[in-house]
């Protein structure tokens, strides 16, 4: 290392050093792609499909942060509840984990719908019972409340659903799909497609509807919005509901592809989605989508071409590097802290 010794290295120098280190992984990935480009494309597709699910969860984190400045740690557990709702809904239609793989689009849609509704209600209930009473307390209080709610949901799930993993019912038959030379499955493409569709719907809702405008108003200034006649309590509840519904849908998409669900299922994807939201610029909706895709891709490519042992460490290293260079995240705006 030939870093200058005289002055203490500022964040810029550290970022430059880390940036140079980042060339090595890029070289490895490029080498891998050069050797086997079909395998590379397959990894990219897997990464993007995984990233779509992360993005769906990340949206919930970012929306709630946008309106309240609160990191809702219980969000990843709402995702887990969504997956369980899917299991029970499919069970109601007679499809269990040990059933032969069927191909019932109607049941799959019913699972997604049920998960979204139940999770939306759960999200709104949590907001009403746990977060609204501490909304005006010092910032640390809602944060600790969120951690508590997360643990509560996990432990209640362990009591109610038992902690032995359950298979996710095969409501859709997995089929191989060939996109040119790249083999993938219909489920992965469906995951990606559904994630994109939900994200487009959310963007339209936030940009084009009255409730969306109210959300943006609250995110700019809660007090001012209320003085202008925005029903803040209701809009905040809707925000929680929407974010949780997306997490519920994410739970089903996750379950279709990775059919094993337990009460701690949400923890890992939730953590990565949180990283995605911060990476993209927390509070920023397109940022959460971009962050999700980046995290999914980085995770997949680093596991495939660098080291499967260090893939999670690499994901977090990237977060650190990006935040050193752009503390506001990839698409975040610099906001001056209001005092």
């Amino acid at each position: 290392m030939t870093a200058p010794r005289a002055a203490p290295p500022g964040p810029k120098v550290a970022a430059a050093a880390l940036g140079l280190l980042a060339l090595w992984p890029l070289y490895r990935v490029a080498l891998g792609a050069w050797r086997d480009w079909v395998g590379f494309l397959r990894n990219v597709l897997e990464g993007v499909s995984l990233g779509g699910v992360y993005a769906l969860i990340a949206l919930g984190y970012t929306m709630v942060y946008g309106v309240l400045g609160l990191i809702n740690f219980a969000h990843s557990d709402v995702f887990m509840v969504g997956a369980y709702v899917g299991i029970f809904t499919a069970g109601f239609f007679g499809i269990t984990a040990s059933s032969q793989a069927g191909s019932s689009v109607a049941v799959t849609v019913a699972c997604v719908a049920a998960a979204m509704v139940v999770c939306a209600l759960l999200g709104m209930t949590l907001e009403r019972l746990a977060y609204r009473p501490v909304r005006n307390a010092p910032k640390l209080t809602p944060l600790v409340t969120a951690i508590g709610v997360s643990m509560l949901l996990q432990n209640v799930a362990m009591l109610v659903f038992k902690s032995t993993p359950r298979g996710f019912p095969p409501t859709l038959r997995t089929a191989s799909v060939h996109l040119g030379p790249v083999a993938t499955t219909n489920i992965k493409l469906l995951d990606l497609g559904a994630a994109v569709a939900l994200m487009v719907a959310l963007t339209l809702l936030v940009q084009k509807t009255r409730v969306g405008r109210a959300m943006r108003a609250i995110s700019t200034n809660l007090e001012a919005a209320r003085l202008m006649g925005v029903p803040t309590d209701r809009v905040i509840a809707v925000t929680f509901g929407l974010g949780s519904a997306l997490a519920g849908a994410g739970g089903i998409l996750f379950g279709l592809d990775q059919p094993r669900i337990d009460p701690l299922t949400g923890v890992q994807p939730g953590l990565k989605a949180f990283v995605a939201a911060v990476l993209g610029g927390i509070g920023n909706i397109p940022g959460a989508m971009l962050g999700g895709l980046v995290i999914g891709l980085v995770e997949q490519l680093s596991a495939a071409y660098l080291s499967s042992s260090f893939a999670p460490a690499i994901v977090f290293a990237i977060l650190v590097v990006v935040l050193l260079v752009r503390p506001q995240g990839l698409l975040g705006r610099v906001t001056r802290e209001k005092v």
């Binding site: 397959r42 990894n43 995984l50 990775q258 997949q300 596991a303 071409y305």
Partner: peptide
Amino acid sequence: YRAGDTHFSAQLNA
């Protein structure tokens, strides 16, 4: 991989 992982395609592709 790590216990709790549900996604092994990167390792298996390699």
